[in-house]
C-alpha cells in the first residue's frame, strides 16, 4: 500500500470517529484552546523559514496564507 493511501485512510477514520461527540466550548472552557501550542499561527519567523525552504524545493505552495515576498530561489 502506498504511504499516502494509508495516511489518508487513518486520518479519515480518526476524523469520522470523532464527528458525533462535538460539544462546542463555552466561554469559560477555552483555557486549553488559548495555549500557544494550540495556535495555527505559531512563531512568525519559524513559519517564514519553513515556507521559504519548502517553496524553494517543492512545486506546491499556499494553503496557510498569502502575502509573503517571493524569491528567485534557483
Amino acid at each position: 500500500m502506498k504511504p499516502l493511501t494509508l495516511i489518508t485512510g487513518l486520518a479519515l477514520s480518526a476524523t469520522l470517529s470523532g464527528c458525533s461527540t462535538f460539544a462546542l466550548p463555552q466561554p469559560w472552557e477555552k483555557g486549553n484552546l488559548a495555549r500557544p501550542e494550540m495556535t495555527f499561527g505559531g512563531d512568525a519567523l519559524e513559519q517564514r523559514y519553513q515556507q521559504h525552504i519548502y517553496t524553494s524545493k517543492e512545486a506546491a505552495s499556499g494553503g496557510s496564507g498569502i502575502g509573503g515576498g517571493g524569491c528567485g530561489c534557483n
Partner: peptide
C-alpha cells in the same frame, strides 16, 4: 494570519 503572527491565541 496572512503569514503567521507570533502567538495568536485561538478561541
Amino acid at each position: 494570519a496572512l503569514h503567521g503572527g507570533l502567538a495568536p491565541a485561538p478561541a
